[in-house]
Design a protein around this nucleic acid. Sequence first.
RNA 1: GGCCGAGUGGCGGAAUAGGCAGACGCACGGGACUUAAAAUCCCGUGAUGGGUAACCAUCGUGCGGGUUCGAUCCCCGCCUCGGCCACCA
Length: 744
Amino acid sequence: LGTVLANEEVQGGVSERGGHPVVRIPLKQWMLRITAYADRLESDLAELDWPASIKKLQSDWIGRSTGAEVDFYIGEAGKFETWKVARQKSGFPRKAGDDVLRVYTTRPDTLFGATYMVISPEHPLVSRLAVGAQKQAVTDYCTEAAKKSDLDRTELAKKKSGVFTGSYAVNPVNGEQIPIWIADYVLISYGTGAIMAVAAHDERDYEFAVQYNLPIRQVVAAKKSKDDTASAEGAFSGEGIAVNSGSYDGLPTAEFKTRIAADLTSSGVGRAAVNYKLRDWLFSRQRFWGEPFPILHELDRAGNPTGAIVAVSPSELPVPLPELEDFKPIGRPEPPLEKAPHEWLYVERNGKRYKRETNTMPQWAGSCWYFLRYIDPTNKERLIDPELEKAWMPVDLYIGGAEHAVLHLLYSRFWHKVLFDRGHVSLPEPFMKLVNQGMILGEMEFTGYRKEEGGFLSSAEVRMDEAGQPVNKVTGAKVTAVKIPVEQVEKQGDQFVLSSNSKIRVDSRAYKMSKSRGNVVNPDEVVREYGADSLRLYEMFMGPLEATKPWSTTGVNGVRGFLDRVWRMIVSDRSEQLELNPAVQKEHATTDQLRMLHKTIASVTHDIETLSFNTAIAKMMEFTNYFTKQDVRPYEVMEQFVLLVSPFAPHFAEELWQLLGHFGSLASEPWPKLDEQYLKQDTVEIPVQVNGKLRGKVSVPAEADAKAIETAARADDRVAELLTDKTIVKVIVVPGKLINFVIR
RNA sequence: GGCCGAGUGGCGGAAUAGGCAGACGCACGGGACUUAAAAUCCCGUGAUGGGUAACCAUCGUGCGGGUUCGAUCCCCGCCUCGGCCACCA
């Protein structure tokens, strides 16, 4: 169990919905120890076929860093030397005692530059370290800090704040006394919640030191480089050569780090350490809809929790939610399940009374392993049949949005590793190949800006205020964004302007779909209007899978038109009955027709393998354009084509398949077989360039060599004319591709 | 502020071991069919200039340089837009 702060969508201290005041309350909640897997989650990324950007995102999120933990003495004054001797004997203790302030640093090489220390306002030693005249100031500061939202405490709130505790610590490497401050730029949740501040070599410490007039001591000299002068102001956080560091002077950063880690260990005041940005995972929700934790809290005679907990026995799993008439939150932090009927809430086991856990799990409890259950969804005995798991796992290709990069995709990997360690699954990673599909934006929009007193401003004269509302760039006066119909807009240079007044620039872009913007496209309506296959086909045709693309309803109409053309290519549109188009005949295909067919088979097959669905569809359109013009459309060619179409428009293809005389589904038919002989060309057209400019084309046999191509090119009238009376410096021939004459 | 990605016709996009820029579709224009419209079919469609015409010339893949016979693609320096993260010591 961990204690964390409730975290809500908050803006300026009130909830986004309803504008209710928001307060932070410490709650006892369930945490999952994902940090125990941080190392493996990081290192196992290497074996995955995932986009580099997503791997980097996860790696950064896990945020592994190496450095050292160091203890600064804060005990009785004058006893520092005694402490040091004792440490030399005992070595570095696992847990910091209360005579030291323990810090984590990635730069132990800057220890000699530590001129003050900072602890987070939530640090357990705050009250002990606040002494004398500073006591009240510290209390006030911590109260203020507790009120601040996470956002207020980020670097966006430009100015740093802090307060001196009145206490000092001793730097173990040089015995120097340095002041201990409290500041909310130090986070309790990272490292030890305390830092040694090296103002000369850390941007944040520098800013703080300047603000509170604390000493700044340089201990790293930048290696000579041309941009030395540029970084004269501020902190230098790069690597260099040690200075002002006693016997370590002259050491390069990397070497210093190794040496000091060994020295800290042998003197017992520090040790090499690894840290992660990744935090443990808060897994409790105070909501009704969620899986109840299968946990029972033991109660004493009086009905109070004893603190002991037991798990619900496997035979009683899963724990279903009770039927509740009213499952709204109750206005206090306790979850809605506190309102559950007593026969659900209280249970007896082995003569003891228990109360059920009333927090519920978040949606991740399902999404982390649903793909395993899909393999064996009706198994009542276990999570999954090991035989089926071995047969189907891992997921070969996972297509999902990049927004899952550090949530779902990290959480699932974590769960999978836990299941792997416990022997429930056979592999440590669930998803081998990952592709991020791009986001689909709303329709393109043209936006003009109307002044309050009428008339339009150019979009260049408008800026957005903090609330995202457009205002006049100069006067700050209110401006209204107005949607402009396409017909009233024209392109001028590289921007759009009003057709009625070409001086008024108009913004043109597509926005992320959102309810508030009102540009959400409802797929149900698209399906109703154009059919499910049209929607599917359009989404595949829009552009590359990974790209962000704007929605276009006329585009859906376009692919619907394609499906209609395919239909008419095969099915008669004259007859009242559903019957084949008379052009579809059981005839032998011509060589030309077979070329078209096999060219299409080759392209579509290849494009599916590379997930280039948009170009696969374009190739099928070319096929259709060609065969629509053919008076005889051989039956077998049409059959093969319908099979090609089937992954893109499955319902549609099944229907055509049956009209072609089949009774079963085409799903079990083999994929069309490519016959390479039809891909070979007898003659090819070779572009002829003169000085890199296209000047003509010549037809040559496909296997023509450089000499033959040059002869053919010189024979071309136009080329010959251009070459007359010129000195040919060089002739470049790429057989099968092009020829280029370089002349003077 | 950091990291990642992207800039090609009116629009979505094709084409990269460096080799015909604009496949395919939308939109638009013209024509056929029709009493008419819709639907359908055919033709055209980067820009500028020239030619009665088939056609020809020049420019053109965000901007400025570079490498190369040749650059949308490679290198250097910028600009713009989008996404994610955000005091992690």
